[in-house]
Simulated assay, not measured.
Amino acid sequence: MNETVHSRRRSARSAAPAKETTRTNDPERTMANIMEVAMTEFAEKGLAGARIDEIAAATQTSKRMIYYYFGSKEGLYLAVLEESYRQMREIESQQHLEDLEPEAALRKLVEFTFDHHATHENYIRVVMSENMNRGQYLAQSQSIQQLNVPAISSIRKLYERGVASGVFRPGLNAIDIHASISALTFFNVSNRHTFGLIFKLDMADAKAMAARRAAITEMVVRYVRA
């Protein structure tokens, strides 16, 4: 997304086309509604298959309004990606891991990530879609790097506390720990349909999910533990 699109999104907080004032009394709410509907549209159909007409109809707005706020379909898609990551990191920051002992904090982080992914399939599907696009749109984001800094910083501090107290083994990398947690919890949602069909498992069954959650948590803890 170029600077023009970012400028439009910022200006939408205080202005909107005069002919559509009934939809712009609350620009932030309108934009949030558009992104919520667009999230489902992009998750189900990907960027190529998504239709602005359908998003406009579902939000009772117009293509013109959507383009005013986001610049283009690609601009809206990028906004949805950024917001998805922002929401996850915001909830993640509320876990107060620093108040727990290192191993308890690590367990809580893995469990949170598992639960988030399990209950936000659209997030997983949109991230999968962007990987199909080889990350070309996320690469245009001016905020994605900064959004993910706190996540790595939190893991690094947690891990260093664990090493200092003798609970965790030294020599590990915070990004690698993050990648391992993400990989295990992401797969559980991204491949639930194919994996379940092949092995005749109901991946959405409550007992199966609880067992998988516990197994993943134990894997990560044992990997880090001294």
Rank of each mutant, 00 (worst) to 15 (best):
M1W: 12
V5N: 13
V5L: 14
V5W: 08
V5Y: 07
H6K: 07
R10S: 09
A12F: 06
R13V: 04
S14L: 06
A15E: 07
A16I: 01
A16R: 07
A18T: 13
A18N: 06
A18E: 14
E20T: 15
T24V: 02
T24P: 06
T24S: 15
N25R: 15
D26S: 14
D26E: 12
D26P: 01
P27I: 01
A32G: 03
N33F: 11
V37W: 05
M39I: 00
K45F: 10
G46C: 04
L47M: 09
A50K: 05
I52T: 11
D53A: 14
E54M: 05
I55S: 00
A58Q: 14
T61I: 09
T61Y: 02
S62R: 09
K63L: 10
R64S: 15
R64V: 14
I66F: 04
Y69R: 06
S72Q: 06
S72Y: 07
K73I: 03
G75N: 01
L76P: 02
Y77K: 04
L81P: 01
E83R: 12
S84L: 08
R86M: 05
R86A: 15
M88K: 04
M88F: 15
R89Q: 15
R89P: 08
E90L: 12
E90A: 12
I91R: 15
E92C: 10
S93C: 09
S93R: 15
Q95D: 03
H96Y: 13
H96N: 14
L97D: 04
P102A: 01
E103T: 07
E103C: 05
A104S: 07
A105I: 01
F112I: 10
F112C: 00
T113S: 10
F114W: 09
D115N: 11
A118D: 02
T119M: 07
T119K: 12
T119P: 06
Y123M: 06
V126G: 04
V127A: 14
E130P: 04
N133C: 10
G135V: 06
G135F: 05
Y137D: 15
I144R: 12
Q145A: 08
Q146K: 10
L147M: 14
A151R: 07
I155H: 05
I155Q: 06
I155G: 03
R156Y: 11
K157W: 10
K157E: 15
L158Y: 03
Y159F: 09
G162M: 08
V167S: 02
V167A: 00
P170F: 10
G171W: 06
G171K: 02
L172V: 05
N173Q: 06
I175Q: 08
I175F: 02
I177K: 02
H178K: 08
H178N: 11
H178Q: 12
A179S: 13
S180Y: 09
A183F: 03
A183E: 04
L184G: 12
N188Q: 10
N188G: 03
N188L: 01
N191C: 04
R192H: 01
F195D: 06
G196I: 03
L197F: 06
L197V: 08
F199L: 13
D205G: 00
K207W: 00
A210F: 02
A210I: 05
A211H: 04
R213K: 13
R213H: 11
A214Q: 08
A214D: 09
V220K: 05
V221Q: 01
R222N: 14
R225D: 08
R225K: 13
R225E: 09
